[in-house]
Design a protein around this nucleic acid. Structure first.
Length: 341
DNA sequence: TCTGGGGTCCTAGGACCC
DNA sequence: TCTGGGGTCCTAGGACCC
């Protein structure tokens, strides 16, 4: 039996623990906390802020317009990281497998006759030790458990297994599945596949023709409620790493672009060194007005952690971009060598 | 609603080689 | 030279997720 644990309103909850006086009023977290700053979006919004139509991903300036009396707090990733680690430590004290999935989620593998009782124990322990609420989903695999935890919100427990999959999911739109978003859902709808039930009975060869040999059949697999069941506890080895910056005002001067690419390349190389990883490929991302994103990349002749090599490569790649339009974002990404290669 | 930052995986097409 | 077929690597972009 797999379970998925999802902390409720994680970032907002951590902030409200630090600022109890803000309970009950609209709070928006994001950027440096200055809602007049352009090109900054909300990381999260409290329930009270949501009632004003504010949601995560919304530009802070829009949020401010919708709710001028809202309190805006800066995003504080180290604080969320620390809170997350406290929660994961509580989970690891249980005789269960823990697969950390971002800051505020974890998959848990357990052998038990009574998963609801285990889930309640976990909720009580997390609440007692961290003052944070979580929702827990129970399923036959991680996909089912993940969807179940959403049904469990707030602070509840829900079971979604193959026994009640069809009755729960069949009439829902395809983007209710974990792994199908708005784009694929729209393409599926254009093929007459609107619901999970319709996708589940679609022809796999048909899907493969439209979505590729891996993705097509996989979508049908998701619609049948199937998915990976193994909870992996071994630490994740990152495939790569990146840093990017959106500028509050567009850049047009090539010297400015070169300066920022150099800084990003140096940061990324330093990150790689600290992680003890070697770089095999460099990608430079450029987003111009009107929100057009392009990437250029180059594979290195040999893996390296030499800052000069990475910087030089990044600058050469930058010159392969069309830089005739104002630039709003620059990014440098690298791929790492993987062990056993 | 003028639209963040950091990831992962898949696909299609071209280059190149045998 | 009118040109087969397969394998592999590389690049650029798309889609999804937290």
């Amino acid at each position: 039996m797999d379970t998925h644990l999802d902390l409720d309103q994680f970032i907002a909850a951590v902030e409200l623990l630090r600022h109890p006086e803000l309970r009950g009023i609209p709070v928006v977290v994001g950027g440096s906390g200055d809602p007049t700053q352009p090109r900054t979006v909300a990381a999260t919004a409290t329930y009270e802020a949501r009632e004003h139509g504010i949601h995560s991903g919304m530009p802070l300036r829009t949020a401010l317009r919708r709710c001028p009396e809202a309190v805006f707090l800066p995003s504080d990733p180290p604080a969320y990281e620390a809170a997350s680690e406290r929660v994961m430590a509580v989970l690891r004290e249980f005789p269960i497998a823990v697969e950390v999935w971002g800051w505020d989620e974890a998959f848990l593998g357990a052998t038990t006759d009574n998963p609801e009782a285990l889930a309640a124990d976990l909720q009580h322990a997390v609440r007692a030790r961290t003052h944070l609420d979580c929702s827990i989903g129970i399923g036959d695999n991680k996909h089912q458990a993940k969807l179940a935890s959403a049904f469990a919100k707030p602070a509840g427990i829900h079971r979604l297994t193959s026994d009640n999959w069809a009755e729960t999911m069949n009439e829902r739109p395809t983007d209710a599945l974990w792994g199908i978003g708005a784009r694929i859902s729209k393409k599926l709808a254009a093929l007459g596949l609107h619901t999970v039930a319709q996708l589940a009975t679609a022809d796999p060869a048909d899907l493969a023709r439209h979505f590729g040999p891996t993705n097509g059949p996989w979508y049908r697999y998701l619609a049948l409620g199937k998915g990976e069941a193994e909870v992996v506890t071994t630490p994740w080895i990152a495939r790569g790493h990146s840093r990017e910056t959106t500028f509050q005002h567009d850049l047009t001067d090539r010297a400015d672009l070169a300066y920022h690419v150099t800084t990003l390349a140096e940061q990324v190389t330093q990150d790689a060194r600290e992680a003890g990883r070697e770089i095999t490929r460099v990608t430079v991302k450029v987003r111009t007005t009107p929100f057009l994103t392009r990437t250029r990349q180059s594979t290195l002749p040999a893996p390296t952690t030499d800052p000069a090599t990475i910087t030089r490569t990044a600058l050469t790649i930058l010159d392969r971009h069309d830089l005739t339009r104002p630039v709003r974002l620059l990014g440098v990404a690298v791929d790492y060598t993987m062990p056993d290669q």
